[in-house]
């Protein structure tokens, strides 16, 4: 059984770890809706804004333009914050994934070390 385990650990198990991180990356893309946010990056915040009135009224034209521009800027910032958070999370996941891969490969040795240390410490403190 132990042989079976090690064969799995360094074979299909490692591949599944890669599969898991791939799933998590696509989850982050879905969770932060990157595609949707990129396409609507400059849209007004919550689609709020003023309609341009008919006729040539400079004052209302400028007022609507300013309001709409502000809404777009707010929208851009809010979406940017989410996109950046998503990118940071993705980067963190990337780092974690690589760490996990390395840890996965080394875990048998880590376990041996942990066990050895634990026995040594328990023995030392009891004696």
């Amino acid at each position: 059984m132990i042989t079976q385990y090690f064969r799995w650990h360094y074979g299909p198990g490692f591949m599944e770890l890669i599969y898991l991180s791939r799933n998590l990356f696509s989850f982050l893309a879905h969770f932060f809706s990157f595609k949707l946010l990129f396409f609507s990056l400059f849209s007004p915040w919550k689609k709020m804004g003023e309609h341009y009135k008919r006729g040539f009224d400079v004052e209302s034209l400028i007022s609507s333009f300013i309001v709409n521009s502000i809404m777009r800027v707010v929208g851009f910032f809010a979406r940017s914050v989410v996109i950046i958070s998503g990118l940071i999370s993705s980067f963190a996941l990337l780092v974690l994934s690589f760490s996990a891969y390395i840890l996965w490969l080394l875990i048998p040795f880590v376990l041996v070390t942990l066990f050895a240390s634990s026995f040594f410490l328990i023995y030392a403190s009891v004696i």
Binding site: N23, S26, H30, S33, G75
Partner: peptide, 18 residues
């Protein structure tokens, strides 16, 4: 994949109107 995709996203509410 299916279980993870079923978690609601936080980005969608920002792309749609109030």
């Amino acid at each position: 994949k299916e279980s993870l995709q079923a978690i609601p996203s936080i980005g969608t509410s920002l792309s749609f109107g109030i």
